[in-house]
Design a protein around this nucleic acid. Sequence first.
DNA 1: GTCTATACCCGGATAGAC
DNA 2: GTCTATCCGGGTATAGAC
Lengths: 190, 190
Amino acid sequence: MRAGPALRHGPIASATLSRLTPRAQEIVRVARELLDREGPEALSMRRIGSLVGIRAASLYEHLRDKQTLEAALISLGFEEQADLFDNAVAASDDPLAALATAYRQFAHKQPHLYRLMTERPLPRDRLTPGVEAAAAKALLDATHGDLDQARAFWAFAHGMVILELNQRFPPTANLDPTWQKGLTAFRDTQ
Amino acid sequence: MRAGPALRHGPIASATLSRLTPRAQEIVRVARELLDREGPEALSMRRIGSLVGIRAASLYEHLRDKQTLEAALISLGFEEQADLFDNAVAASDDPLAALATAYRQFAHKQPHLYRLMTERPLPRDRLTPGVEAAAAKALLDATHGDLDQARAFWAFAHGMVILELNQRFPPTANLDPTWQKGLTAFRDTQ
DNA sequence: GTCTATACCCGGATAGAC
DNA sequence: GTCTATCCGGGTATAGAC
């Protein structure tokens, strides 16, 4: 049972944000908006600075470097996933199906953040401790601790999401039955 | 039954290469070596030019632009996949397992090319006609024409490969049983 | 804490001489 | 077919003044 964020109103308490100074929090917030709107390629220190209202050079007073900023965005993503996935499972009696839906939703609502989180090796050293594991917990529970089952299902879900984001399926393809196929496959061999 | 390339010795006849002038073929060959060695980020016209022995500006005499060059590399990748997958299926009585192994091998042997082929939307307009479909044929046959089954299995395979390339599994993880899980899951619901 | 100035990289692509 | 020269753009990050 998770306490806190999901039950509160207003801004979500974030372990990641709470480790930053107010000014750094603002910068991360602005960077997140830019990321969501224009994608990872647009995330430059100059662009962020201009949106915050200061020069790029001044950003370094608040954040060590760009990697630190990206790590914060990724950590926030994991925190959001953890909440989303935990809540999805809690509200369903078919955990794997609920997770598939929640995973898909996260990626579709924030495709650029999803890319940032998955396209490159994770900067694990700079993440907020524990966020990666927290996001993975619901799936691990759903497979009753079967690591191979969890990884295989994750691979399927990530493959579906990223191939769709990369427009590798025909634009007209209805992917609902494809998700069903995968879901059935993995549920039956559980 | 495929004729030609798989049965011949020496250089493989390539529809993609045969559409280029000899000089352009050489440039593409050099670009491919650079890609394999250093990855897509290293693929700049200046680097390619210096390896060919001419200035970057002179490359434009032989290839319209960089996109054209990348499309050629991607087309070559599809051609290689088609041969690899067709041969794998032909030599096995478990087509899905054979395809999984071949897919994994392709990605591991040429990770940078694999990334180039999957990380962005395909420049379908500029590909050699038919190569994408040719690479997909073996899988479609293996699922007896079931599109959803083929797509779901592809998503699983791509997810496994790309999550591994992106170091998203623990470095110590043995992924063989994970592939087995997925394989079993999809074979049983065939 | 913010600025200007700057150092250092990198990229794709074109014009026009030879 | 290749060259030089150049145009345009981009980027991260630091030094030192205010």
